[in-house]
Simulated assay, not measured.
Amino acid sequence: MNIEKLIPIPDLCSYYEVEMSFFTKLSEMGRLEIIKIESSSYIDLDAIYEIEKMIHIHQDLEVNLEGIDVVLNMLQKLDGLQSELQSLKNRLRLYES
């Protein structure tokens, strides 16, 4: 793994003002992959968008970790339904023309 694409979790904790337990619990819930190298813990840079979304839900909306999981599951299902709806609209246009 390229260490240049990894962000140390303590850096994220201080930047976003969250505790290490926040990331640990997200990892336990399967929402986040923590990469351990020697005695340090890191997050892949590609996961930063999802991390920021979870932190926003947690801090700004005051949602607990279990609620974050529920919200993200619902958003994922909503995205799937929107994709399916768009696909059905496209198929309907084919039959209408």
Rank of each mutant, 00 (worst) to 15 (best):
L75R: 09
S39M: 08
K5G: 01
I57D: 05
L78R: 05
Q86N: 14
E66C: 08
N64P: 01
C13H: 03
N64V: 09
L72P: 00
S21V: 13
N64Y: 07
L81P: 04
I9D: 04
D46R: 15
V71Y: 03
E66G: 06
I3T: 15
D11F: 12
E62N: 13
S40M: 03
S41P: 01
E62K: 13
Y95D: 03
E50A: 07
I43E: 09
I9N: 02
S41E: 13
M20Q: 04
E17S: 12
I7H: 01
S14K: 14
D79F: 07
K53G: 03
S27C: 11
L81Q: 11
L85N: 14
F22Q: 05
T24E: 10
Q76T: 13
E19S: 08
Y15D: 10
M54T: 05
S41I: 09
K53V: 08
C13I: 08
R93E: 13
I55E: 08
Y15V: 07
E62P: 03
L85R: 15
F23C: 00
S97D: 15
S21Y: 08
Q59S: 09
Q86W: 04
E52D: 14
I55W: 02
E84P: 02
K89L: 12
Y49G: 07
I9M: 06
N73L: 02
L26D: 02
N90W: 05
E38D: 14
M74E: 01
F22T: 02
N90A: 15
M1R: 00
V71R: 06
N73Q: 12
L75E: 00
M74P: 02
M74K: 03
I57Q: 07
D46L: 13
P10I: 04
M74Y: 13
S41Y: 12
E96G: 00
I68V: 15
L12H: 07
S21Q: 11
L81N: 10
L72N: 10
L85A: 12
L81C: 08
I37T: 12
S21P: 00
M29F: 01
K5C: 06
L65C: 06
I35L: 11
K77D: 12
S87M: 13
Y16E: 00
L92F: 10
V18W: 02
S40L: 12
L65D: 12
Y16K: 06
Y16P: 01
K25S: 10
V70T: 14
S14E: 14
E33A: 05
S83W: 08
C13A: 09
D46K: 15
Q59W: 00
S87E: 14
Y16V: 04
E38M: 03
L6K: 00
D44I: 02
I9H: 00
L45Q: 15
L88E: 15
G67S: 03
E50W: 04
N73D: 14
K5P: 01
K36V: 01
I37W: 09
E38G: 10
K89M: 05
I43H: 02
N64G: 00
D60A: 11
L45S: 13
E4Q: 04
E52Q: 13
L6P: 01
Y42R: 10
H58C: 00
L65H: 06
G30Y: 07
F23N: 02
